[in-house]
Design a protein around this nucleic acid. Structure first.
Lengths: 194, 194
DNA sequence: CGCGACGTTGATTTGCCTCAACGATTGTGG
DNA sequence: CCACAATCGTTGAGGCAAATCAACGTCGCG
């Protein structure tokens, strides 16, 4: 099956596309294969694409002044990833997006996305809902960061993303939870004693 | 000037509304005056409105199991506030929204908002952009929380929201930064020595 | 006036970090 | 396909940022 089919059926779950819309979308997508450890965005670059992950897995992270990476999110199959800040405001990104696994993606450029928003209004509605869902997720995560211990956040991560937790190295999970790998190891040790 | 004018000109900054759209919107808004310390959403309730703040200031927060409040965000004049999670999925909210100052708001119900989304597609585009901006803000805040000290976050809050920092009590700012009021007081003391 | 929210300070504790060391696993270039 | 390097996971000693708890003075408000 063509990867593009994945995306059209992804959209159909929100709002079904007619032939015209479907055509407008697919003609503007470009497919790419990405190797492990390859970047699709680096700090300082201006983000040019909204990316849909067909297969594989990515992380988006920032690097602090002491050189430590902080994972903002992961995106695996059937998910979206982009630095919206850089994409919208056309300014240098503060983030990296890097493949954790060999991956296949579909990308749409900012210009083409704007074309869709203007000429096929339905895409506004679909992306509005997609972003709203991501906003909710992020807000819950921030609340959790403020109100629970690292131990609890780890348990909750395992529950919420079983399918990420068993394919990611613990160092990456630690970074996502906002703790060091060493401390996650201690949490895991404590947990296994139960 | 009628408060509704504020909102129409708020929208005009994104995308200008024609008479029909403007009429569809204004006929669905209800204006309310809210007293200080009054709630417009309480934990356990289902959030029914998207709220635009005309005048005044609100906080949205969650309460952890030890009873401590954690501020997720503030909304002052010309800003939006709602628990999207509860509003969309129609499930009991985990959050409170409370007025910090006597306020005037405009509210639109979920049903009316859906009506606008369906019958006046332009609103999808406007709200998509509004939510995208809020998503970006939240993501930057999460990254900051992971990568900087409380001292730095406080400085950055003062810079970014001068107009909130001089009208909010420090206890509320501390909660927003994810620290205790006592520790914020120590930061302020250290800062004034410079 | 009196009460509750606020801001501050100090003593003590704690959750998590830093640094260092080590074995196990993985991946990759020759 | 093997050998070596890099990444990964773990453990331990020591340190630090921020929390906790308690006390106290101030202020605004009903």
């Amino acid at each position: 099956m063509s990867p593009i089919k994945n995306l059209v059926s992804h959209f159909d779950r929100y709002l079904s596309l007619d032939d015209d819309e479907s055509q407008a979308l697919t003609s503007r997508l470009s497919e790419r294969k990405i190797r492990r450890k390859q970047y699709i965005l680096q700090e300082g670059d201006i983000c040019k694409y909204f990316t849909y992950v067909v297969e594989g897995c990515f992380k988006m992270y920032g690097v602090d002044k002491s050189g430590t990476e902080h994972n903002l999110l992961f995106a695996a199959e059937d998910d979206w990833i982009s630095d919206l800040d850089s994409l919208h405001k056309e300014r240098p990104s503060k983030l990296f997006i890097e493949a954790i696994e060999p991956s296949t993606i579909l990308q749409i450029s900012k210009g083409d996305l704007w074309y869709l928003y203007t000429n096929h209004p339905k895409f506004n509605r679909i992306f509005r809902v997609i972003i709203e869902d991501k906003y909710i997720e992020l807000q819950n995560r921030l609340l959790q960061t403020f109100s629970t211990t690292a131990y609890e956040r780890y348990e909750s991560f395992l529950e919420q993303y079983p399918n990420l937790s068993n394919r990611l190295p613990n160092t990456q999970i630690a970074s996502y939870l906002g703790i060091t790998p060493e401390f996650l190891s201690k949490i895991r040790n404590e947990r296994s004693g139960k």
